[in-house]
């Protein structure tokens, strides 16, 4: 089993490159007929470079717009979306689960204490609850009810370098994403353990999901496995394929 998982992670970057190439191929064939033949231009390296340069500019503007004091709107319980939709890069039948008792959160990078954390340790910390709107990059949105430990509190506990640029999240479903330190320290950014009055169900990321109401859905990873504080740009599953990295709301 562990051998199998090691293989998977070893080939993940190559798989991603292949996926990306296939997507760009798709862009070419769909766009080839288009009057706005810019679609086909996507495959042209200079156009791709220009688009990603603009995307980095957009990221910088988003970081400038972001305020650590500005809060996402919180709603009454009556506004919660039922059922809250399942969403991931794979089908619901492919959800992976772990034994909560055996689960550990790995801690790495620029922190003074790298010991892994158990769920019980997180349960022992003060919890914050929020009913906020989850907005997907596709445009749809849903209001949900999460509670858990503020990420800022966790980062302080592990002695993280709070001047570092990035916090990187890796998940045991081979998803990954990363965020800026300012968002990591935002008061509504939490390591969610519960949905409603119960522990997170598998569909919502059991046993731990990062809930960030100031960011789009793809910046809210589920099935968390490790947290790393770093100054090296970590990218992410969707970001490497072309979604803008900041992904702020």
């Amino acid at each position: 089993m562990s051998q199998h998982r090691l293989d998977r992670s070893a080939i993940a970057p190559e798989l991603r490159r292949i996926e990306r190439r296939l997507m760009l191929k798709g862009a070419l064939s769909l766009g080839g007929l288009s009057m706005l033949s810019g679609c086909a231009l996507d495959d042209e390296p200079s156009v791709e470079r220009a688009l990603s340069a603009m995307s980095r500019f957009t990221d910088r503007m988003q970081a400038l717009l972001f305020s650590r004091q500005r809060l996402a709107r919180e709603f009454d319980a009556s506004r919660i979306t039922h059922p809250f939709p399942y969403n991931a890069y794979y089908d619901e039948s492919a959800i992976r689960t772990v034994d909560p008792a055996g689960w550990r959160l790995e801690v790495g990078g620029l922190v003074s204490d790298r010991r892994p954390w158990t769920l019980a340790q997180f349960r022992a910390l003060p919890q914050k609850r929020q009913i906020t709107r989850h907005i997907c990059v596709e445009g749809w949105s849903a209001i949900g009810d999460w509670s858990g430990v503020p990420l800022s509190m966790f980062l302080q506990r592990v002695g993280a370098d709070l001047r570092a640029k990035y916090v990187n999240f890796r998940c045991f479903d081979d998803y990954s994403t990363s965020i800026d330190m300012a968002t990591a320290l935002h008061p509504q950014t939490i390591l969610a353990l519960d949905y409603g009055d119960h522990a997170l169900p598998p569909a919502y990321g059991a046993p731990m999901k990062v809930r960030i109401p100031t960011k789009l859905g793809y910046k809210n990873p589920k099935y968390l496995a490790s947290i790393e504080v770093t100054n090296r740009f970590p990218g992410g599953y969707w970001e490497d394929q072309g979604y803008d990295w900041f992904g702020g709301s």
Binding site: G26, L30, G31, M35, C39, L51, T58, G242
Partner: peptide, 22 residues
């Protein structure tokens, strides 16, 4: 219709949308 859209897939569409926005 797909032929009338720009970008080929959502990620590219968003990249075009924000580039053109500025």
């Amino acid at each position: 219709p797909a032929w009338a859209t720009l970008g080929g897939w959502l990620g590219s569409g968003i990249a075009w949308h924000f580039a053109a926005m500025w």
